[in-house]
Design a binder for these strands. Structure first.
Lengths: 219, 219
DNA sequence: ATGGTATTTTTTTGATCAAATGTCGCAAGT
DNA sequence: ACTTGCGACATTTGATCAAAAAAATACCAT
């Protein structure tokens, strides 16, 4: 009674699958996504695929590319600044609210994600880095127990993911600082302000890296 | 070649229709929404209806009620505070950014919405108030020219709408202050900070009213 | 015998699929 | 460079299957 892998409907499975593909860089920005292509790859009917794409589109994770083809968007500098502003407005607050709901068990799980993340960095595993970095933050935000703010944060992550992927694909996982350690220390001591500050620092870090890359590309 | 009323696909028509029904209080919180009911009312197949519901669900405008029935959510105090925090983080900034893109033509259109709004207040027309108040803000945010932030603001409005409706249904449109006048003045003078402050005041106003109602109900 | 509960039957609704329809892009040919 | 035909794709519908809610019936305890 611990797992229920086959219990959820197709359209949710497809949604999650597609979502992770976008989040962890399996779908490159600009690469076209067709309904029928996914039907064959995922081996389901087109109705569930349709719904999943529709959902992701309304979350900004996919966009209508010109005609009626959809693809993963590549934010330009202006859009990236919007994402940055929104994330910095929401996520530190989320981290602050999560602090009081964190006990030893939760700390342990967060440490687990962080270990996996560091291992991925050492291994030069880009996909692993993206995934565990996301899981760390997503779990932390879940602990805040907030419905609205968490959904916004998740939506923003969906927009930020592909850009991070591009940066890492370019420079690799070398010199990726680990700001999570500080957040974990602050969580242990229950200092909400320090947690918020650590998370803010972590986010600013990532934002700056993408920003540099965007500047360099836009010769 | 001037009209294109039938040019957009069904699923978008249904989405917009449903969206407005939620925004302007035609669907009461808690009232169940069935796919087949909408199929009959809107006279389309179930696939477009499905997609529209899916989209609205992912935007938080509808929620899964128990098993697989959806309805308009009624935020409790904690959720309302989340919505309030997010709106106050995003919307004043949006108003600030919009300021520099506002010319005489845009002012005129905003004034038009405001006039309709005031007329609705005098008439005691709740639905009209909700609609024109929304159009005023939505247009202003469109003028900011931002993709990400605007979509967040619209999503938040979708969550806030039903609660506003409840308040107005209870107390009517009397003593509804008009903070738009101040915003319009500031827009004319191009003072972005003042525009942001006016919008903030407007939002705080509405938030406080809903908050009082929630407190009063939660005896 | 009556009130309430459990169980079975009926009906409604949701999920998925396969096929029909229409549209748009693309490339070949003028 | 412009037109035209082909092909790929999105959109929509209607049908089918499964699951859950609602209604009806039967059962049991008091």
């Amino acid at each position: 009674m611990s797992e229920k892998p086959a219990k959820l409907p197709d359209h949710q499975r497809v949604y999650r699958k597609l979502r992770e593909m976008i989040l962890f860089g399996e779908l490159a920005p600009g690469q076209p996504v067709t309904i029928q292509g996914l039907v064959q790859v995922l081996d389901v009917g087109m109705t569930p695929v349709r719904e999943a794409i529709r959902r992701l589109t309304s979350e900004g994770a996919l966009i209508f590319k010109g005609n009626r083809r959809v693809s993963v968007p590549q934010p330009d500098m202006a859009q990236w600044d919007e994402i940055a502003f929104a994330r910095l407005s929401i996520e530190p607050e989320l981290a602050r609210m999560a602090t009081e709901n964190v006990g030893p068990a939760e700390i342990e799980r967060l440490v687990g994600y962080d270990d996996l993340l560091n291992a991925a960095i050492d291994r030069g595993d880009v996909r692993g880095y993206l995934e565990h970095n996301y899981r760390f933050h997503a779990y932390l935000y879940d602990l805040a127990g907030t419905e609205v703010l968490s959904s916004i944060a998740n939506m923003l992550w969906l927009r930020a993911g592909p850009s991070l992927r591009v940066v890492l694909g370019r420079y690799g996982t070398a010199n990726l600082p680990d700001k999570h350690a500080e957040a974990l220390e602050a969580l242990k001591s229950g200092d909400a302000d320090r947690v918020a500050a650590a998370v803010r620092g972590d986010i600013e870090q990532g934002i700056a890296q993408v920003r540099e890359t965007l500047l360099a590309e836009k010769v």
